[in-house]
Amino acid sequence: MSSNNPSQLLPSELIDRCIGSKIWVIMKGDKELVGTLRGFDVYVNMVLEDVTEYEITSEGRRITKLDQILLNGNNIAILVPGGSPPDE
C-alpha cells in the first residue's frame, strides 16, 4: 500500500526514518526519555543510546543518564522525532 503511493507513510516507516537520530519518548505515566534511536521491533521495543531519563515526581524532576538501553514498548505513549528535551 504505502510503497505504491509515496505520500502514504506507515507509522513504523516514520520510526524507521528516525534510526540514528535523536528521539523523544513520552511514556504512559510521568516519565520521558530522550536518546538516539538504534533500532526497534514490531512491539516498538526500542534500543536507545546516550539516554536521558526524566521522571516527574512530587519533589520535582529526577534525571538519569544511561549508556544504552532496551526500552519495553509496553508503556510507550508518544514518539517525537528530533528529541527536543522536555522543559517544564
Binding site: E13, G39, V47
Partner: peptide
C-alpha cells in the same frame, strides 16, 4: 522489516541488543 539492516552497523534491533 523495512528498516533493520539498512543503516548497517548503526542499527541495533532489540534482538541484537539482547544477544
Amino acid at each position: 522489516m523495512s528498516g533493520a539492516g539498512e543503516k548497517g552497523s548503526t542499527t541495533k534491533t532489540p534482538a541484537d541488543f539482547l544477544k
